[in-house]
Design a protein around this nucleic acid. Sequence first.
DNA 1: TTGTGGTATGTTAGTGCTAACTTACTTCAT
DNA 2: ATGAAGTAAGTTAGCACTAACATACCACAA
Lengths: 200, 200
Amino acid sequence: MPAADRRQQIVDVAAELFSQKGFSGTMTKEIADRVGVSEAIIFRHFESKEALYSAILDYKVRQTAEQIQEHLKQAESRKDDFAFFRTLAFDLLEMYRNDPTLMRLLMFSGLEGHKLSEIFFESTMNEVRMLLRRYVAQRIEDGTFRKIDPIIASRAFGGMIVHQVFVWTLYKDDMERSSAELADQFTELFLTGVRMTNHK
Amino acid sequence: MPAADRRQQIVDVAAELFSQKGFSGTMTKEIADRVGVSEAIIFRHFESKEALYSAILDYKVRQTAEQIQEHLKQAESRKDDFAFFRTLAFDLLEMYRNDPTLMRLLMFSGLEGHKLSEIFFESTMNEVRMLLRRYVAQRIEDGTFRKIDPIIASRAFGGMIVHQVFVWTLYKDDMERSSAELADQFTELFLTGVRMTNHK
DNA sequence: TTGTGGTATGTTAGTGCTAACTTACTTCAT
DNA sequence: ATGAAGTAAGTTAGCACTAACATACCACAA
């Protein structure tokens, strides 16, 4: 098998394992076995276990960052408030639902204090936060939203989404709701909550 | 030092370490050093590292469960909606803020699939969820709240709170807001969002 | 065509260290 | 002098990582 393919294969398998058991809970031997190859091969492609872990996070973080950028653009192009928030919510929910490994990797590495996850939170996630804050601030100026704290309001909305992902990630969920339903209801609740009361 | 005291001391120190680095990231030697005692002492008090970990989770989970019960009771005794939700939000925010180790332990053990954290999520946290759902359902029946899905609405409110805790736990926060401010705004946003629009 | 070297991909069988856990012994208060 | 509290010094197993060797494939000069 050509080197590039094998490398990618190792990354895929290892991502799965690291996301299940964290960095120190995963053994290189196990990765090798799962790939169906001897342990030495791992170390031909990656300098160390640490380097492999970084490569995985880097890969996942890049991939996710791209997707999120896309979604942000799409959301920004929406003209009405409902479409804006609902698109954002739906896309993020779907993204994590389709790839649960990402959230687990981010949580593990966040807890373990790995740099790449910090970078992710401080760059990509920050863009999401900022977009939300700007949007809310703008609508307050417009007089459409009440005079709330845009930072807290943004966090409230983000919280609904992230927490749902959190629940999906950590426990077997006790409610069966589609991303669409959740996005609809979260958005409606939020918009009703922040709009001027005399507004339709 | 009497056995009971030493035991408690070990639990305290180990809780701190496990919450910082997870189960497999923490070494028994390190715990012993931090306690200022030889490693063998750890194993006189606990059968294994695993047993120590379970003891810690058990201790923390019980302690937290009690606190939460209290808070739920207090919240339930509140007559008006604002007081109910705001009390719940504030108490939970403060609880985790005062003891960040708990959230980290729960997250680590949740990710690692430890039983006790499952139990916690399925018993104590479930009570919180159920209380919220019942309350919301009741208010919908009363005609005070709009005909929303009580389960989703509860999750939305819970999400605001838990996510805030999540942010405090994982990243240096970029916003400085007190639990009181957050509780106020979350509650107001939520209540405005779910109430009948023609209601004051 | 064929032999020859070179390179890429792989394996086996370690090495050395670390970390959980143990044993055999010491100290000391009652 | 007995039992509770503690220690020093292992033992064992596992894990990251490596060295040495094996095989397949390919380019190309004879």
